[in-house]
Amino acid sequence: MIPAAFDYHRPKSMDEVIALLGEHGDDARVMAGGHSLIPMMKLRMAEVPHLIDLQDIENLAEITIEEGHISLGAMVTQHDLITHSKLALRAPILREAALQIADPQVRYMGTIGGNLANGDPGNDMPGVMQCLGARINLIGPDGARSVAARDYYEAAYMTDREDDEVLVSVDFQAPSGGYAYEKQKRKIGDYATAAAAVMITKSEGKIASASVAMTNLSDVPVWSEEAGAALVGTACDGAALEAAVAAMLGDIDPSEDNRGPVAFKRHVAGVILKRAITRAWGRA
């Protein structure tokens, strides 16, 4: 598994990155940790004549928590998400999700930006960010813009990001209430058979708000507004869980692969979602 030759660029600023993307067009790709892109290049399934390594860009690896608002630079790694104690307090779902991604070595290199940017249906963070209602921040030749994570994913490996734009950060309001990231996989290092991100707030013994998203059960992450709505106002009883699952099952569209046939995935999706909701409710 040997990649094709490429020219390597390690720019120091975003302006340089944008210029390189402008100059080389489709022939250029940016790389953060490389743990999605490099395997594809080694298999020669991705051809990248110009590789732009983002590691020297300043401020791209910052975690800022200010006045209840959290911003994560694209180069923040899964390992950073796990070990950042303040973040673990303010948005513990990130730590819980990051711990279920790949393995320790991959988490040192794998970044939030790489996980979010490309629309790989197997990645976990897109669902988490949809659950959190995050905004994805892009910089391109025409400047900066921001897209809701819930609007960013169009199809497998197709996103709202243009080829000449770079995902630079993601930001969201620090969540409150109970949380859970529940994932079934075959082994460490596998993508999800089914995974669910759930945030729940509680008021007077009832669910005040709920946000529910699932991973790898469609060609895009699935945030189900209806599933969340089905929970609101309930005490998370059996009927509410069933209603949320029914709503989610209406929104997912899994396909058969080595993890199993569609019927199995749909069933497991329901089970995992119920477990995630129940756990989040228990923490709310």
């Binding site: 490389g34 490099i38 590789l51 040192y108």
Partner: peptide, 9 residues
């Protein structure tokens, strides 16, 4: 960092 050196140029 512990890194898998087969996945780094």
């Amino acid at each position: 960092k512990s890194v898998k050196s087969c996945t780094m140029f």
